[in-house]
Amino acid sequence: ELPPNAPTVAAYFVIHNSGKTADRLLSVDSPISAVAELHEHVMQGDLMKMQQVPSVDIPAGGNVMFAPMAYHVMLVNLKDRSLLSDG
C-alpha cells in the first residue's frame, strides 16, 4: 500500500513488442507527477542501488517487465494521488 504522504512512487507495467525489430523506450511522462524517470536496480558490490537510465531496449517479439528490483518508472512530486491505483 502506498504511504499517504510519499512524494515519490514507482510505477510497474509490462511493455510488449510484437514487431519484428527491436525498439527503445526513450522517455516517460505522467499527468499525475511533475517528473517521471526511467530507473533500474543494479548490484554494486554488496549493495543494491537504484539509478536513472536514459532508455530501455525492447527486443523484437519480446517483453520488458517493469517491476520491483528491475526497471521501473519513478513518479516524482505527485500532483494528484487520487489517480493512482493498483493494476
Rank of each mutant, 00 (worst) to 15 (best):
E1T: 13
E1S: 13
L2W: 06
P3E: 07
A6I: 10
A6D: 14
T8H: 07
V9R: 01
A10W: 05
A11C: 10
A11P: 02
Y12Q: 01
Y12N: 05
F13Q: 03
F13M: 09
V14Y: 00
V14P: 00
I15C: 03
I15K: 00
H16Q: 02
H16M: 01
N17S: 05
N17G: 03
N17K: 02
N17T: 05
N17W: 01
N17P: 07
S18Q: 09
G19E: 05
K20S: 15
K20P: 11
T21L: 11
T21K: 11
T21Y: 06
L25Y: 02
L26E: 12
L26N: 10
S27W: 08
S27P: 05
V28Y: 00
D29S: 15
D29Q: 10
S30R: 02
S30A: 09
P31Y: 04
I32N: 10
I32H: 08
I32D: 12
A34I: 10
A34T: 14
A34E: 15
V35N: 04
A36K: 02
A36H: 01
A36W: 02
A36F: 03
L38A: 06
H39A: 10
H39M: 13
H39D: 05
H39T: 13
E40G: 04
E40R: 12
H41T: 15
V42C: 04
V42K: 08
V42H: 06
V42Q: 08
M43Y: 12
Q44L: 14
Q44I: 15
G45H: 08
G45N: 08
G45I: 12
G45C: 09
G45W: 07
D46V: 12
D46G: 10
D46R: 11
L47N: 13
L47F: 13
M48W: 13
M48A: 14
M48T: 15
K49R: 13
K49I: 15
Q51N: 12
Q51P: 06
Q52D: 06
V53L: 07
V53Y: 05
P54I: 10
P54T: 13
P54L: 09
S55L: 05
V56E: 02
V56T: 07
V56L: 02
V56D: 01
I58R: 00
I58D: 00
P59Y: 01
P59W: 01
P59D: 02
A60D: 04
A60R: 02
G61M: 07
G61A: 07
G62Q: 00
G62M: 01
N63A: 08
N63T: 14
V64K: 01
M65H: 08
M65V: 14
F66A: 04
A67D: 11
P68C: 06
A70K: 10
Y71W: 11
H72V: 03
H72N: 13
H72W: 12
H72P: 04
H72F: 15
V73K: 00
V73S: 01
M74N: 14
M74C: 07
N77F: 06
L78N: 06
L78T: 09
L78I: 12
R81D: 11
S82N: 08
L83M: 15
L83I: 06
L84F: 09
S85A: 15
D86H: 08
G87Q: 04
G87R: 05
